[in-house]
């Protein structure tokens, strides 16, 4: 890994303490997010706050299984996010398909399509686990190791090819989208 300049180190340490997450519940793991956000666990303590649109967000939470229809939107949304951006995969579904390993519509591993910085195991992960994952991500960002966005740029061709393999086309044209 390249040496970071001082400015990059400062920026990384700031980034680690202000994570704006995209307000997008892609799956059932989102059910444990409200408790994490609210009084009991209060993740705003760590500077994690929900944001409305991908342009403003730093982290994308893939909260569980992704079917192909959602994956298209996830990829599109991920590409709309500003660098540096991080992805957290929730639950076993994002790791290896989890309980839906043989489903005809859900994908089996997320990092095949977009780079993932942190996975959280479990179905569904408890709020404590989510907070732990956030802390781990923060640590990674501080050290400059959360480089999923760089990997996506470097291996863009590979990711695109994987996406096309599973999805056919990412930017879908159908009667809804004309």
């Amino acid at each position: 890994m390249k040496e970071r300049t001082m400015w990059e180190q400062i920026a990384d340490s700031l980034r680690s303490r202000s994570l704006w997450m995209l307000h997008y519940c892609t799956g059932c793991g989102a059910m444990e997010l409200p408790p994490t956000m609210t009084a009991r666990f209060d993740m705003e303590r760590f500077g994690v706050a929900p944001m409305a649109t991908p342009r403003q967000a730093d982290i994308m939470l893939i909260t569980g299984y992704l079917n192909t229809k959602t994956l298209r939107r996830v990829i599109y949304t991920y590409e709309q996010m500003a660098d540096p951006k991080y992805v957290i995969g929730f639950g076993s579904c994002t790791i290896n398909g989890g309980i839906y390993f043989d489903s005809y519509s859900t994908i089996n591993r997320l990092d095949y399509y977009i780079p993932v910085d942190v996975y959280i195991a479990g179905c569904m992960p408890r709020p404590e686990a989510i907070l732990e994952a956030f802390n781990y991500l923060m640590e990674k960002i501080r050290k400059g190791e959360a480089d999923g966005w760089k990997r996506y740029k470097e291996n863009y061709e590979w990711y695109k090819q994987n996406q096309i393999r599973s999805l056919g086309e990412v930017y879908v044209h159908d009667e809804f989208h004309e």
Partner: peptide, 16 residues
């Protein structure tokens, strides 16, 4: 041809 509008579209694809 076939490029979607690349601004915030709620995650959907809009071509027009």
């Amino acid at each position: 041809e076939g490029a979607p509008i690349n601004i915030y579209t709620s995650g959907e694809f809009i071509y027009t």
